[in-house]
Amino acid sequence: MELASSLQGLAGGILIGISAVWLMASLGRIAGISGIVGTLITQRPQGDSAWRLAFLAGLVSGPLVLMLFGGGLGNVVNSPGEVIGEPLGGVSLMLVAGLLVGLGTGLGSGCTSGHGVCGLARLSPRSLAATVTFLLAALVTVYVQRHVLGA
């Protein structure tokens, strides 16, 4: 891994941490992306839609600002200049995977940002269990895909 990629990852992690702390300190809210998006989509506006929209705008605008200043997002395997590549399993598999992730965040009462970043920082046993479950599921998925299915 090259130094520039490491520094970008470090900067991104610091910004995620700052935003999570800022949201908790200013509004007493946990920076769980699935909860922020889910509430915007499924519930009536309760007067707190503005901060949710601003938070999501920040998530989307960060990479756009990076691109404006010439820091490409080259994150596609075998095509480092590409921002978004062709999905390896096809669009239909991506849609199914997205649906499963959405169902999982609903069943787990949160996502990796809520449990993994904010919950672990608060020493929540429930978040520890959820994060271990996320990681184990990812490990099993990669193992099955690479060593059982041979993809």
Rank of each mutant, 00 (worst) to 15 (best):
G108F: 12
Q43C: 09
P87Y: 03
L99S: 11
G72H: 15
G72I: 06
R29E: 14
I36W: 07
G32W: 01
E82K: 10
G89T: 07
L68D: 07
V76L: 02
G32F: 02
G102C: 00
A4W: 13
T42D: 12
L68T: 09
A130K: 02
V76R: 04
L27S: 15
I30C: 12
L15H: 01
A31R: 05
Q46V: 15
E86N: 11
G28F: 08
L23I: 11
S124C: 06
G116P: 00
A121P: 00
S113A: 06
S113V: 03
A130L: 09
V60I: 12
P45T: 09
G72Q: 12
G110W: 02
H147F: 13
A129Q: 07
M1G: 12
S109C: 04
G81P: 00
L135N: 10
G74C: 04
M1K: 04
A121K: 05
P45L: 10
I18M: 12
Q43N: 15
L123Y: 12
L59T: 00
L53H: 02
L103P: 00
G17D: 01
S5Q: 12
W51K: 05
N78G: 09
P80Q: 05
G71I: 14
L27Y: 14
L56Y: 01
G108C: 09
V21G: 04
G71C: 11
L95S: 11
V142L: 15
T105G: 06
V21A: 14
R29V: 04
G12I: 05
L95G: 09
T105V: 10
A50C: 05
R146I: 10
A130T: 10
V96F: 10
G150W: 08
F134V: 08
M67C: 01
P87W: 03
I41F: 15
G106V: 01
L103K: 03
I84H: 00
Q145E: 14
E82D: 15
I16C: 07
V101C: 10
A54G: 06
S49N: 12
M94A: 12
W22M: 14
G90E: 08
I18G: 08
T141Y: 15
A4M: 13
R126H: 03
A31C: 09
